[in-house]
Amino acid sequence: QVNIAPGSLDKALNQYAAHSGFTLSVDASLTRGKQSNGLHGDYDVESGLQQLLDGSGLQVKPLGNNSWTLEP
């Protein structure tokens, strides 16, 4: 069960990665100043990332080996 409060997208993504045990490689300029609506409930990694990114204009991309990145 994930419980991440709304706020900074950077912070939300870092909390989610730490909670879910995956690696997220992101260029900080992509997420700077963006906000997230947070995340509450049970999600697989990709669904949770998509939910956190909702409205940010960013997309999640798998890199393999439980690693992910973001792209515009």
Score class of each variant (00 low, 15 high):
residue 58 L to F: 05
residue 34 K to E: 06
residue 30 L to V: 07
residue 6 P to N: 03
residue 68 W to A: 00
residue 63 L to N: 11
residue 5 A to S: 11
residue 54 D to R: 15
residue 49 L to C: 05
residue 2 V to A: 07
residue 65 N to M: 09
residue 30 L to T: 04
residue 65 N to L: 10
residue 12 A to L: 09
residue 26 V to Q: 03
residue 58 L to A: 02
residue 24 L to M: 09
residue 31 T to N: 02
residue 56 S to N: 04
residue 12 A to D: 02
residue 51 Q to W: 08
residue 10 D to W: 15
residue 19 H to K: 11
residue 20 S to C: 15
residue 68 W to G: 00
residue 14 N to Q: 15
residue 44 D to C: 08
residue 57 G to K: 05
residue 9 L to G: 01
residue 69 T to K: 10
residue 61 K to T: 07
residue 8 S to R: 10
residue 59 Q to L: 11
residue 55 G to T: 02
residue 17 A to M: 10
residue 12 A to T: 07
residue 54 D to F: 14
residue 20 S to H: 15
residue 8 S to K: 07
residue 24 L to D: 01
residue 14 N to I: 14
residue 64 G to L: 05
residue 30 L to P: 01
residue 67 S to R: 13
residue 6 P to A: 12
residue 47 S to T: 12
residue 8 S to I: 06
residue 49 L to I: 07
residue 42 D to K: 13
residue 64 G to V: 03
residue 59 Q to N: 10
residue 66 N to Y: 08
residue 6 P to R: 09
residue 4 I to R: 01
residue 9 L to F: 02
residue 6 P to W: 05
residue 33 G to R: 06
residue 9 L to Y: 02
residue 1 Q to I: 14
residue 72 P to M: 11
residue 31 T to I: 14
residue 7 G to D: 06
residue 30 L to I: 08
residue 2 V to R: 05
residue 5 A to Q: 11
residue 30 L to A: 03
residue 63 L to K: 07
residue 64 G to A: 06
residue 52 L to E: 01
residue 56 S to W: 05
residue 35 Q to G: 07
residue 50 Q to T: 12
residue 9 L to T: 00
residue 2 V to H: 06
residue 57 G to L: 05
residue 16 Y to I: 01
residue 45 V to L: 08
residue 6 P to C: 10
residue 8 S to W: 12
residue 43 Y to Q: 03
residue 12 A to S: 07
residue 37 N to W: 10
residue 28 A to C: 14
residue 2 V to S: 05
residue 14 N to M: 15
residue 58 L to G: 02
residue 46 E to F: 15
residue 60 V to G: 09
residue 39 L to K: 02
residue 30 L to Y: 07
residue 72 P to V: 12
residue 28 A to T: 10
residue 10 D to S: 11
residue 17 A to Q: 08
residue 1 Q to Y: 15
residue 3 N to Q: 10
residue 51 Q to E: 09
residue 44 D to Y: 04
residue 10 D to A: 12
residue 41 G to W: 04
residue 64 G to R: 04
residue 56 S to L: 09
residue 21 G to L: 05
residue 40 H to R: 13
residue 15 Q to I: 10
residue 42 D to H: 14
residue 32 R to N: 11
residue 59 Q to P: 01
residue 37 N to C: 15
residue 26 V to G: 08
residue 45 V to H: 06
residue 26 V to F: 15
residue 26 V to A: 09
residue 54 D to E: 15
residue 54 D to W: 14
residue 48 G to Y: 05
residue 16 Y to Q: 00
residue 35 Q to S: 11
residue 42 D to F: 15
residue 52 L to S: 01
residue 34 K to H: 08
residue 39 L to F: 02
residue 48 G to Q: 02
residue 14 N to R: 15
residue 6 P to T: 05
residue 29 S to I: 10
residue 57 G to Y: 04
residue 11 K to T: 12
residue 21 G to H: 08
residue 40 H to K: 13
residue 66 N to P: 00
residue 39 L to N: 00
residue 23 T to Q: 10
residue 26 V to L: 09
residue 41 G to M: 03
residue 33 G to N: 10
residue 67 S to Y: 09
residue 34 K to G: 02
residue 21 G to M: 06
residue 13 L to Y: 03
residue 56 S to E: 01
residue 11 K to S: 13
residue 12 A to H: 02
residue 55 G to E: 04
residue 3 N to M: 11
residue 13 L to I: 06
residue 16 Y to V: 01
residue 60 V to Y: 10
residue 39 L to G: 01
residue 2 V to I: 11
residue 53 L to V: 12
residue 1 Q to M: 14
residue 57 G to C: 12
residue 17 A to Y: 03
residue 16 Y to P: 00
residue 14 N to F: 14
residue 27 D to P: 09
residue 54 D to P: 05
residue 56 S to Q: 06
residue 57 G to Q: 05
residue 61 K to L: 08
residue 38 G to W: 05
residue 40 H to T: 11
residue 52 L to Y: 00
residue 24 L to T: 03
residue 62 P to S: 14
residue 28 A to Y: 10
residue 23 T to Y: 10
residue 36 S to G: 02
residue 29 S to W: 12
